[in-house]
Simulated scan of single mutants.
Amino acid sequence: MGTAIILIKLIAAHLVGDFILQTDKLCADKFSNNKAFRYRALSVHALVHAALAYLFVAQWNNWAVPLVIGASHFLIDLVKTHFKRKDLVGFVCDQLAHYCVIVVLWLIVFANHDYNQAAKILSANFWLIATTYIAVLSPTSVLIKSFIEYEKWLPTDASLKGLPNAGKWIGYLERILILTFIFTGNIEGVGFLLAAKSVFRFGELNRAKDIKTTEYVLIGTFTSFTIAIMLGFGVDWLMELNFE
């Protein structure tokens, strides 16, 4: 089980490359009708992923990792942009394809082989927790947004209300707090957080003239809480398995 840390690092590298370091412009260029822009964006994005995988895994003599990650990322994203799938189905299929490559690569190269532990500075549990915190930020926000848009649950005037990006940061903070409560054994804090958010949202929902706005807020809140809680308890269980 000692090589499980490599799998966790590969997942962390993917999350950082696909969500934190991928700008809106780069994402838009990947779907551009201009082939030069599209292939340049795909190449840059693939190189970023290859570099991150190489740095995170820190097996300096193993070039299979950056080559496979970079090449597969280019090809998978090329297929996605060819079909121009920006919806929930495209997002899920794209992510599943990347994770399948990561798991197969890990199984072939690391799972049953020795690896150089000289670069192992931080524990597997640290990487597991760090990766989970990364996952509940932008990746979860993109998933929730894609889910709501796919189901056509977004009110027509929802974008006109509130501060710019405030909803995104509220989501970030609430999911970070949920994970922190779970990891520190203060589960009651999750209930307190939900109650507090309900109190603050009550006035807004009470004044809402359209029931769609109320349902939109509730769906977003419960989806956010559900993902964070499931990830928190899932990772808490994984840490008990002791990957060291």
Rank of each mutant, 00 (worst) to 15 (best):
Q117P: 03
L96M: 06
D236I: 03
P66S: 08
L143Q: 10
G189M: 03
G203N: 14
I121T: 10
K9R: 14
L128W: 08
V101T: 13
F222A: 01
A130Y: 07
D236T: 09
L122S: 05
K9F: 08
I11K: 02
E188V: 05
L163V: 15
Q59I: 04
A196V: 01
G232E: 04
W153N: 12
G17W: 08
V235I: 15
L10T: 01
Y115E: 02
L177P: 01
V136A: 01
N34D: 15
T131I: 03
I144G: 05
T184P: 01
L55C: 13
L21P: 07
V190A: 01
L52R: 11
F110I: 01
H98Y: 05
F31H: 11
N242M: 03
H49T: 10
C100I: 13
A71K: 06
A208W: 08
Y172A: 04
P139C: 11
I144W: 10
W127G: 02
H45Y: 10
G2Q: 13
R40S: 12
I182A: 03
N206F: 14
I227P: 02
L177R: 01
W106N: 06
R201E: 06
I219S: 00
V235A: 07
A36K: 15
I76S: 02
L52W: 11
I129F: 12
H45W: 09
C93G: 09
A118E: 10
F222H: 00
L143E: 10
L218Y: 08
V103M: 07
F83L: 14
D18I: 06
L179G: 04
I11Q: 02
L137K: 03
I11V: 15
K145E: 12
D87G: 07
L241W: 14
G70F: 03
V48W: 09
A71T: 14
Q117G: 02
T81M: 05
K212Y: 11
G90E: 07
A111D: 07
K145H: 14
N165L: 14
I144H: 03
L218W: 07
S159L: 08
L42W: 09
A228K: 00
N34C: 14
I108F: 12
A196Y: 00
N242Y: 06
L205A: 15
G220E: 02
E149F: 12
L105M: 13
L107A: 15
T180V: 04
T184R: 04
V16Q: 09
I187Y: 03
L78Q: 11
S123E: 06
I102Y: 09
E151A: 13
T132C: 11
W153M: 15
G232Y: 03
F126Q: 00
W63R: 11
Y39E: 04
Y216F: 15
F37S: 14
